[in-house]
């Protein structure tokens, strides 16, 4: 990997690690409030919002930690890619249904509001970072090599 590619890889990896560790910690410390944010999407039955609120922060936290440590990067990126795709579908459904709520992406108790459209753009940016990390890691360790992932 060239020096520039290496800088882009590590920078993207660290940004993603920071974002998802922060998101996981902030949601995991108040899962009931986060369940309320999930419920605002009006996609799941009552109790399932609590199930999502119990699990999702730990997926984000674990993947963020792996990215920070530069270990098992591609499995973590794959999980976060799928997760982000689900977030983007949920946000799109809010826009289609005309529901204007705070996305609940980070702090469930935050007074400032992030609109679904703004959150969608942010998630699109995260997707680009995830793809960059995947591709650059892929170039560093092509299939069939022992990449230590």
């Amino acid at each position: 990997m060239s020096r520039l590619a290496s800088i882009i890889y590590h920078l993207s990896r660290l940004i993603l690690a920071g974002v998802f560790i922060y998101a996981g910690v902030i949601k995991g410390t108040d899962p009931v409030a986060f369940a309320g944010q999930v419920a605002n999407y009006q996609l799941l039955p009552y109790a399932w919002n609590y199930l999502v609120a119990a699990i999702l922060p730990y997926i984000e936290l674990l993947c963020g930690m792996l990215l920070l440590l530069n270990k098992r990067v591609r499995p973590a990126v794959l999980v976060l890619f799928v997760l982000n795709l689900v977030f983007m579908l949920a946000l799109s459904s809010l826009i289609v249904r005309g529901i204007d709520i705070d996305c609940g992406c980070f702090n469930p108790d935050a007074e400032s509001k992030t609109s679904p459209l703004m959150a969608l753009w942010r998630d699109a940016g995260l997707m680009l970072l995830l793809i960059s990390v995947w591709m650059l890691r892929y170039r560093q360790h092509p299939p069939g090599t022992n990449d230590g992932d």
């Binding site: 995991g28 009552y46 609590y50 699990i55 730990y58 997926i59 098992r72 499995p75 999980v79």
Partner: peptide
């Protein structure tokens, strides 16, 4: 292998999340 590790990662996170919040989830259900 990446797919398998991703699944293991999810399973581990689910186990941690559920063990820490089992009472909340149980009460909700």
């Amino acid at each position: 292998r990446i797919l398998l590790e991703a699944l293991i990662l999810c399973a581990f996170a689910m186990a941690v999340g559920l063990s820490l919040n089992y009472r909340m989830v149980l009460n909700a259900f």
